[in-house]
Amino acid sequence: MSGAPHLLTAREAGLVSCTRCTRVWPAGTSACGRCGKPLVSRDGYSLSRVWAWWIAGLMCYFPANLYPMLRTQVLFTVSEDTIVGGAIELAKYGSYFVALIILIASVAIPIGKFVAIAWLAVSVRRGSRARPQSRHRLYEIVEYIGRWSMIDVFVVAILTALVQLNIAASIKPGPAALAFALSVIFTMLSAQAFDPRLIWDRDTSDDGTDRA
């Protein structure tokens, strides 16, 4: 069997489905009678919301990388580390594995996520030669993996709470912690705003329009 079979969709059957509880209703129903979610056959505003959160996330991502994440004070020397700087520092002391985790969670995943969401949003508008299966797989990965970027914010929180040893050593959070947390939250909202059903609609001429 090659490719996915063509199946009747709820929209083609003159029905509208609830994406939260999978219940199906006659077209024109305004809210799901089971879970209360407002119903739209295809969310026409989905892409606008995706782009709005995407831009907000990207705007927070720049200060998150430019400003220091941590201020470490050991005896009388104070050092400030950005995300990438901190990872390089770790690698210098031989903790390659942890440096790699930080780089993947804080650099590779966020950037990959921005690119992936943008590509998905553009591809449902313009059409794409990539199979819907692959695009859907990408969407699932983005949805699943996005939360893990929060790890760096948690590490800063843990270190700040823990490393308060008077003058021997202390750690304070930098402004990048807030910017980074916001960036992760905004990109999660961007991915959540995306309506994956748009990927599967063959007829690209009426995507985004709402027949319900």
């Binding site: 199946l7 009747l8 969709t9 709820a10 929209r11 059957a13 029905l15 489905s17 609830c18 994406t19 939260r20 999978t22 199906v24 819907p132 859907h136 994956p196 059903r197 990927i199 599967w200």
Partner: peptide, 8 residues
């Protein structure tokens, strides 16, 4: 209906 692709 599949919440991801609308298949019925």
């Amino acid at each position: 209906a599949c919440p991801q692709c609308d298949a019925l």
